[in-house]
Design a protein around this nucleic acid. Sequence first.
DNA 1: ATTTGTAAAATCGTATACGATATATTATAT
DNA 2: ATATAATATATCGTATACGATTTTACAAAT
Lengths: 212, 212
Amino acid sequence: MIIKITLRDQVKSFLQDQMMNGELSFGERISLPVLAKKLNVSVTPIREALTQLQHADIVEAIPNRGFFLPLPNIEKVSELYPIIANLEYLGVSESTYSEKDINRLEALFEKENTFDNPVDRIQSDIKFHELLLKNYKNDALKSFLYDLKLRVFLYEFYYMEDANLAQTSSNYHKNIIASLKKGNSLKAADLIKESWLTSIQFIQQHFKQKAS
Amino acid sequence: MIIKITLRDQVKSFLQDQMMNGELSFGERISLPVLAKKLNVSVTPIREALTQLQHADIVEAIPNRGFFLPLPNIEKVSELYPIIANLEYLGVSESTYSEKDINRLEALFEKENTFDNPVDRIQSDIKFHELLLKNYKNDALKSFLYDLKLRVFLYEFYYMEDANLAQTSSNYHKNIIASLKKGNSLKAADLIKESWLTSIQFIQQHFKQKAS
DNA sequence: ATTTGTAAAATCGTATACGATATATTATAT
DNA sequence: ATATAATATATCGTATACGATTTTACAAAT
């Protein structure tokens, strides 16, 4: 079977990868002609990719001005994190984990303290959470979560920049693994949810400090 | 302040309205040239609107074949309904309701038994759920829910076609209102979640019968 | 120096054009 | 009559063109 991928979807993937690699910042403009030249395609698939991301509120479109990443918005943090918290809670609470699954989580956990930059930490954290949902067969939920992670990436950046907070995140992972070893995935789900909800405060604090 | 609305967003709204009015069916093709003539615009904003809906899995795009509404898929029901259930649970559990709010819910409830067709019932049901989330300030969650409702509309159709099931839905509403009157929004949230989760079985049954 | 106004440049939004792919139709062969 | 092959038609995907809007640059006026 032949799978065709349209240019617009390739461009979308390119943009998503860029975001996940921390190559774009708050409020950054995404210029159609610039990106078109860079990717060697016309502006049409570029704008189609961007309008897709616009629908998911991953980028913003201002008519006749262009496409931009959103500006920092504390309110959005308190909207998005509870959604992530509850969706991941749902996934973990309905999952079961084999010994092999737990070993893979532990392997990831061992590595995550070795990273010294926020992007690596976030990517490792995202992998950890994806692995937690590996056994939960719900692609709709996973793609929602993927979009949500794109939307909070830049906030996470400020969280993971702080070594202490990165350690807090890692501690949650340790406790989650411990719960799973006891076969208590409900406790693990609670911890996942809690980890997202507690980080709201820290991120909001960070931006309040910045404002002052 | 002047607000501009692009053609692509107008087209998207048009399509969303069409879906919410039950004017499109499972697997139905959405032809670019046909829709372009109907709306008197070129195909470009049409395809941009459709690619937006494609990103949210509201429509499907098959390269060089076109855009289609999804075909019935029992698995998607068991993916989407739990997501809706949990997101609405979150919203209701964190909401408080004034006497006026409850009166408005009751007014809607009184009307909903008078509808004799599935589309009116679904729209009334959606309004009821929207009203339940009115006090929950989380636009991100609400727009996720809006997209999800679009995706399950056609399944809901088969649910609300059945007068008995419509009655079941209405009973949940009655109990939800009763719980809110007692100031027990947690119980109301439980009922909301339960109402979504129980409907999964009925819908799956419906499609299994059809298959045989 | 700041503000206002004008002109130029850049960018977007939509329409159109055209090649590529898929579907439908017709003709041919079995 | 059915199946296969070839052709014609329709549709999509992308590129390009062009008008409209916005931003930038710069000059003039306060």
